[in-house]
């Protein structure tokens, strides 16, 4: 196969171009701080009374399944609940050092969502409204999003044999697009939920903490957690006490896998060269070994031959000299005998 130089340079150019384009997103150490003017919700747990109106509004808006117990039944608050296929949001009750508190749980709509980062068909996307959307039309159902979500939010329709979907809060994106509030926010009778531009919500939250330092922990949950979330929380008690993990760190999820993903092209680039080199070295060693063997055989044959020749020569020489000696002695003997007979003749 022959490759012209121009062709090769062309390929190389195309390959490096592709690399440049794909590398653009994370080049130059830029940090993603969310889409401008994107929305969020501020949940002030100090104001929440655990009435479950948000749960009921969510259920109605998303046409979810009927709950086991009606939303007016507050005994369910006794047990710790998580989101399910039929409850995109749940309110839990906590006994804390600062008294009884209620906290609402739903998708936090991360700025850089783990679910979107790990989805191998890009079913999850961070929308500019602030919502993390899910596209069931491409979902394969691997459930890696559920493994990755640090807040344990997405749920799955395990009992659907043919078209199961991942279920989670949509931030009521259709309502936001139509200029309305998310259903849970609209339903809240106590202003424990405020919908608005995330930046503004952060300011409001900060002001509340400054105004009532005795009432709030000095921590806006969601400002930094896992790279920041669109939902923000205020709490009178430590967040750990209301079952919100404080050990998540401020690194966004893509940063966790970025290193491992970055090694991949290096392996693809270097491994073939290394392995081909190993193969070439092995082959060369085998060739040298073979050559050496042949050489050794040759030398051995030659030496043997030489020794044999030598021995033969020696033997021949010996034979020669023996022959000569025999002739000599025979001649001598003959001469002597001749002389003897001459002598006797003379005596006679």
């Amino acid at each position: 196969m022959s490759i012209s130089r121009r062709k090769f340079i062309g390929w190389f150019g195309a390959a490096s171009g592709a690399l440049l384009v794909s590398g653009k997103a994370r080049a130059s150490g830029k940090e993603f701080k969310g889409f401008p003017k994107s929305n969020g919700v501020l949940h002030d747990t100090a104001l929440c009374v655990g009435c479950r109106t948000c749960e009921s509004a969510c259920n109605k808006e998303n046409k979810l399944g009927k709950p086991d117990k009606p939303f007016t039944d507050l005994t369910v608050l006794k047990e710790k609940r998580r989101t399910t296929n039929d409850a995109y949001t749940v309110v839990n009750k906590f006994e804390t050092k600062k008294g009884v508190l209620f906290a609402k749980k739903q998708c936090n709509h991360c700025l850089e969502p783990a679910c979107a980062s790990v989805c191998f068909v890009k079913a999850f996307k961070k929308d500019k409204t602030g919502a993390v959307t899910y596209d069931a039309d491409v979902c394969v159902g691997c459930r890696y999003c559920m493994v990755a979500c640090p807040f344990d939010v997405p749920t799955y329709e395990y009992d659907d044999p043919f078209t199961p979907e991942v279920k989670k809060c949509t931030l009521c994106k259709p309502r936001i697009d139509a200029g309305k509030l998310p259903a849970c926010v609209e339903g809240c009778p106590k202003d424990a939920l405020i919908f608005g531009e995330r930046k503004k919500l952060l300011k409001i939250a900060r002001k509340r903490i400054e105004k009532h330092p005795e009432r709030y922990e000095d921590h806006i949950y969601g400002e930094k957690e896992m790279g920041g979330t669109s939902w923000l929380y205020l709490s009178p008690a430590k967040f750990e006490e209301i079952d919100m993990r404080e050990d998540l760190g401020s690194k966004s999820t893509p940063e966790l896998t970025h290193g491992a993903l970055a090694v991949v092209p290096m392996v693809v680039g270097l491994w073939p060269a290394f392995l081909t080199g190993m193969y070439a070295m092995t082959k060369r060693r085998q060739k040298i070994a073979l050559d050496e063997k042949n050489e050794a055989v040759k030398v051995a044959t030659e030496t043997t031959k030489a020794t044999a020749d030598e021995a033969l020569k020696e033997a021949l020489k010996k034979a020669e000299s023996a022959k000569e000696k025999a002739i000599d002695s025979a001649v001598k003997k003959a001469l002597e005998e001749a002389k003897k007979s001459e002598d006797t003749e003379e005596e006679e």
């Binding site: 980062s117 790990v118 191998f120 068909v121 079913a123 491409v138 394969v140």
Partner: peptide
């Protein structure tokens, strides 16, 4: 789908 319809190369699973 991950290869033919909607590739998500940021995923380790991809």
């Amino acid at each position: 789908y991950p290869f033919a319809v909607s590739p998500g190369p940021t995923s380790m699973l991809f």
